[in-house]
């Protein structure tokens, strides 16, 4: 009964959505604001990856919010799982291959992650992606050495510093440029590593922060 009702309701909803979607042409150019980004983004920000430019500059405030949400996710998990004990389950030590592989892979994964977020303004990728990669490095190391813990305090400090510095950079922009998060640093030459003003700086911070948070979340859930 419940299934049928749910199904009927969903069908009605999706009929509505179908009508709506049929109004939105697929694959056609319907940009208005982003035209501006595509045409002037490079000039205005010096970052060749427009998505990055949008994420960190035009819509930088969203990104700040996004960081906050991830932060909340991490703390929230901490609140929910506070004082949760693993019931003394014996964790089997993993096989030798995993053990050795994780030791071997961990620095490379870390390096790859760092590469991704440092090049976020030039190529596909960025802080979040890089952070995720870093976190996966931690995941592997966890799988390799389930008994080893990274210090929770360390994670906290890293994520806290990342967030605070992000805001400080934004406030610096407010102080010097008159707008929060305004791009105060010189733009540099397009397509070089040092370009895009504050964007790479922010992405580095984001990368570190996201890495720390995701790693924190993974560890929390693993326990």
């Amino acid at each position: 009964m419940k299934k049928i009702i749910s199904f009927v309701l969903l069908v009605i909803i999706f009929i509505g959505i179908y009508f709506a979607v049929s109004q939105i042409p697929y694959g056609k150019d319907k940009m208005s604001v982003s035209k501006h980004y595509l045409n002037n983004g490079v000039k205005e920000n010096g970052a060749s990856n427009i998505v990055t430019s949008v994420v960190l500059n035009y819509r930088g405030f969203d990104t700040l919010g996004e960081l906050t949400i991830l932060f909340i996710g991490a703390i929230g998990l901490g609140v929910v799982l506070f004082g949760f004990e693993t019931k003394g389950k014996d964790i089997k030590s993993p096989s030798l291959i995993l053990n050795a592989g994780s030791t071997f892979l961990f620095p490379f994964i870390l390096l790859f992650g760092i590469y991704i977020f440092i090049h976020g303004h030039l190529s596909p990728g960025g802080g979040f992606q890089g952070g995720a990669v870093i976190a996966s490095g931690f995941l592997i190391s966890y799988l390799g050495y389930p008994k080893k813990r990274i210090s929770e305090k360390g994670i906290h400090i890293v994520e806290s510093l990342g967030g605070t510095l992000f805001i400080l950079i934004g406030l610096l922009g407010l102080l010097l440029g008159g707008y929060f998060l305004s791009n105060i640093l010189p733009k540099g030459t397009v397509n070089t590593l040092v370009s895009g003003g504050i964007i790479p700086l922010l992405y580095v911070l984001i990368g570190i922060k996201v890495g720390a948070e995701l790693a924190g979340i993974i560890y929390k859930l693993m326990e």
């Binding site: 940009m31 604001v33 982003s34 980004y37 595509l38 983004g41 427009i50 998505v51 430019s53 949008v54 994420v55 819509r59 969203d62 990104t63 919010g65 996004e66 949400i69 991830l70 909340i72 996710g73 991490a74 929230g76 998990l77 929910v80 960025g126 979040f128 996201v210 995701l214 979340i217 929390k220 859930l221």
Partner: peptide, 22 residues
């Protein structure tokens, strides 16, 4: 292609991660 939705999706994914983790 339009860069804005990509930025939005980036945000949305992160939000989703937080919600699912919680």
């Amino acid at each position: 292609v339009d860069p804005v939705p990509q930025a939005l999706v980036l945000t949305a994914i992160v939000i989703n991660v937080a919600i699912l983790a919680l």
